[in-house]
Simulated scan of single mutants.
Amino acid sequence: MDWDNLRYFLELSRAGKLTAAARHLEVDHTTVARRVQALEKSLGRPLFIRSGSGYQLAESGRRLLAQAEAMESAFLAIEKDEGESIAGGVSGSVRIGATEGYGVELLAGQLAKLSRHHPSLSIDLLAVPRMVRLARHEADIVITLERPERGPYIITKLTDYTLRLYAAPEYLERQPPIRSREDLREHTFVSYIEDLLYSKELHYLDEIGKPKQIALRSTSILAQQKAAIAGAGIAILPSFAARSEERLVEILADEVEFVRTFWMLMPVEGKDLARMRVTWDFLREMAQENQDVMMGR
């Protein structure tokens, strides 16, 4: 069996469409189709159910998927382990997926320290306003808002953090005073686009009641912070990102606070790789050192 054909099978099973799989593999979609057909011919059975909406795994494809993913994991572990140590140091690459706010506001600066200590280690940081998925091999280590219920992962609670209400002084000066939670209902907010929320943990407004108006919605927490600074309205922001911003005022600090948790996970097969252990331990150490910052103290 040709391993290359299995790679095309795996990518199509994850993407569901020839064009999407081809884009990720950086080949033409006809190449993906040809490779999958060759694999089906060699096995003597169809692996996909083809329809106008794309490709869905047939029963034989579902059976093959688990075996192919195990082979892929073993192959990647061997491939990555080749550059694991140079002159006793740690080398190779580690890709970290994190929420946008945490990745940009804290991790980007912290990871510079890791790079100085391990100059042969290469770090990719995916700081994006969506869920980064280990199952799709988008990253080696993922920091997420939700603890996975199952999967071949090592999982740890990284840290709790707080979110609070913030607004620009210019906004507050032209609006009615805010003395209690009830007053918030008459104010304008900046928030997420509800139908594009990537985690149930982001439903903050449900905890304080719907406001009179939401002036601006964005999938980006940093865009929401910028909008609040410009006076668009009140925003619910992570304390670690907003508290040091001089152009924002904290509202009802003793009355309204949201607590959320960051979880960190990596594939089980990564635990024996030096570069993964070093990065994992560093991220935990940084989270512990910054507890006051994370909790808005």
Rank of each mutant, 00 (worst) to 15 (best):
A227E: 05
D140I: 10
W280T: 00
I143T: 03
E11C: 09
A108Q: 15
V293Y: 05
D272G: 11
Y204K: 00
T144F: 09
E246F: 12
F189H: 04
R62E: 07
H118L: 11
M286Y: 09
H203E: 09
D292Q: 01
I78E: 15
P169S: 05
I251P: 00
A58L: 04
W280L: 01
V142M: 04
I221E: 14
E40Y: 13
Y198H: 14
A127T: 05
T156L: 11
A20E: 14
R62T: 13
E40P: 04
V268S: 13
G61S: 14
L107N: 04
A230I: 08
E269W: 03
F262S: 10
L196N: 13
I123T: 08
T219H: 10
E26I: 06
E170F: 00
V268I: 07
E207F: 09
E194I: 11
A253K: 08
R185C: 12
Y102W: 13
I208A: 07
P238A: 04
M266K: 03
R150M: 14
L25W: 05
L165A: 02
L184K: 12
L165R: 02
V249K: 11
L134F: 10
G88W: 10
S93W: 12
S91L: 02
L43D: 11
R34F: 06
A87R: 14
P169V: 02
Y161Q: 06
R174V: 04
E105P: 03
N5S: 04
T219S: 05
Y192P: 09
K212P: 06
L43G: 02
R217K: 15
R63I: 12
D254H: 05
T156M: 11
F75Y: 15
L64K: 07
E100T: 06
T159M: 01
R45P: 09
R277S: 13
A228H: 01
K157R: 15
I208G: 14
Q67L: 13
L10I: 11
R150E: 15
F189R: 06
L114E: 14
R34A: 00
Y102L: 14
M295T: 04
S191R: 02
L47F: 01
G209P: 08
K226F: 10
D292W: 00
P119R: 03
V36K: 01
W263I: 07
E82I: 04
H118T: 06
E255V: 05
I141A: 12
T144R: 08
V94Y: 07
P169G: 07
L163H: 04
I49C: 06
Y171F: 15
